[in-house]
């Protein structure tokens, strides 16, 4: 099925949820509101003509200048019909949360954890929402645009500080370096 046909189907069912549809070099991007993301994904996954059974990637984007600051992007692919679609859910800063799609695609589990780790977007209904890349006691969300490159000022990761502290005792053991 052509991507634009899929968007027509989506329009039939979720017209009020769709914000806009853009096209670039045969790729179709659908921007949606976040409230019914689970229903839309369920529809895209279950409909026999669309059958998006493979979640290629799930990621977050930070647009500080936009009204709705964050976006969660779903790259969908159908192994059966071999068509693709990019779904973008708008997440405003005042309520940084969105429904988890783990019930539909199990592979979203760590992808959502990573997005939460890096952008601080919380996924409702996620089975195990912990940090993946950063240490669990890390403060701040590194891929947000307002996160300083060298880390938050006045805050240091405890584990690294402890290692430094141990190094100060090395000379007491007469370890020459």
């Amino acid at each position: 099925m052509e991507p634009l046909e899929i968007t027509e189907r989506l329009k039939d069912r979720f017209l009020n949820e769709i914000v806009d549809i853009t096209q670039f070099r045969d790729q179709v991007h659908i921007r949606i509101k976040k409230e019914k993301v689970l229903d839309i994904c369920r529809f895209l996954h279950d409909d026999p003509d669309i059958r998006m059974d493979y979640l290629t990637d799930l990621l977050g984007v930070d647009y500080p200048e936009r009204e709705s600051r964050f976006e969660v992007v779903y790259n969908l692919y159908s192994l059966k019909h071999r068509h693709r679609l990019v779904l973008k859910a708008l997440v405003p800063e005042k309520d940084v949360s969105i429904d988890s799609v783990v019930p539909i695609w199990q592979g979203a589990n760590w992808l959502e954890r990573e997005t939460c780790d890096m952008y601080g977007i919380s996924f409702n209904g996620h089975p195990d929402l912990r940090r993946v890349l950063m240490p669990e006691d890390w403060e701040g969300y590194p891929l947000r645009k307002d996160y300083p490159l060298k880390g938050l000022e006045g805050w240091e990761y405890k584990g690294h500080e402890e290692a430094k502290e141990l190094h100060t005792h090395d000379s007491e053991w007469n370890i020459q370096s």
Binding site: M134, P142, Y147, P148, L149, K150, G151, L152, H160, A163, K164, L166, H167, D170, I175, Q176, S177
Partner: peptide, 17 residues
């Protein structure tokens, strides 16, 4: 990698020979 997550030289916490 002069960034938030990378240690700026392992000699900050180890005696390097």
């Amino acid at each position: 990698f002069n960034t938030y997550s990378v240690v700026q030289g392992v000699d900050t916490f180890l005696p390097v020979d």
